[in-house]
Simulated assay, not measured.
Amino acid sequence: MKKKRWIFTLIIVIAAVGFYSFIKFNPPIEVNTLGMSQSHKSVVVGIGNTGFSKMEILNVSVNNNEKPVEAKVQVSNHSRGLIITEDFDSKEAREFGFTNIKDVTIPARTSFSDREKDSDNKNDKIYGISALHNKAIHTVYIKYRYLGISFEEKVSIDS
């Protein structure tokens, strides 16, 4: 009886480690758009979730893990797209649904490749991380959580 319990426990542990490893080596974030202002002090990184559960953005930093002056998530629709702005409060920018990072979760199946497969609905929501900084931005770091596991995506901005 003890041997069966031990084997069952071992199988559960192996399955849990396998699941964790699969998720860790196949992160769900997809970067599909990249835009920047001429000064490179404002960037937008379009993101999607290829996974089967929601994804939570935890933090955004730039360059050498510096805190940006401001960072927000754009929630827009496919036909309107994303905007590059240096002022989140401008009249033009308000139409693009800028939201605090902590207030947005990225639903499953919101990746660019999923959208291409099901291109019937042009009003699907699209998501972008927008960051403003007082110096040119060369790198954006996006920390996020998926199924309780933390990840960090490094996005290089070509100058």
Rank of each mutant, 00 (worst) to 15 (best):
A131F: 09
N100S: 15
K67T: 15
N123P: 00
T105L: 03
K67Q: 12
R115C: 07
S76Y: 10
S150F: 04
Y144N: 01
T99P: 01
Y141L: 15
V69S: 13
I137A: 12
N49S: 06
N64Y: 01
N64S: 13
I101G: 07
S76H: 09
V69G: 04
S113W: 07
Y127C: 04
S113M: 10
D118R: 06
S42G: 03
N49H: 03
I142R: 11
V44K: 04
G97N: 10
S53R: 04
V45P: 04
P68G: 07
I142D: 09
R115L: 12
N121A: 08
S90V: 07
D118W: 06
G51I: 08
N123W: 13
S76N: 10
L132Y: 05
V43Y: 10
E66N: 15
K117I: 10
I149W: 08
L82V: 03
H133E: 06
G51W: 10
Y127P: 04
A71C: 03
D118K: 13
I142Q: 10
F112C: 04
N63P: 12
Y144W: 02
I126C: 13
D114W: 14
N100K: 14
K91I: 14
V44T: 12
E86P: 00
K143W: 01
R145K: 15
E152F: 00
T110Y: 07
Y127I: 03
V140M: 09
N63Y: 12
H78R: 14
D120T: 14
Y144P: 08
T99C: 03
V62Q: 05
Y146H: 13
D89C: 02
R115V: 01
F98A: 02
D118I: 05
R109T: 09
K72L: 14
K91H: 09
K122M: 15
D124P: 00
F88A: 02
S61K: 13
H78L: 14
R94Y: 07
V45S: 05
S76T: 10
E66Y: 09
K125C: 10
I129F: 09
T110D: 09
D114T: 11
V43N: 10
G97Q: 07
H133S: 14
D87W: 01
I101S: 05
A108T: 08
V104M: 06
H40Q: 13
Y146D: 02
D103T: 09
F112V: 11
H40M: 14
I149R: 01
E116R: 11
T99R: 15
F96S: 08
S39F: 05
K154R: 09
V75A: 04
A108D: 10
S130D: 07
M55Q: 00
K54L: 04
V140D: 12
Y127H: 06
I47G: 03
V69N: 12
K67A: 14
K54I: 01
L82C: 11
I142L: 08
L58R: 08
M55W: 01
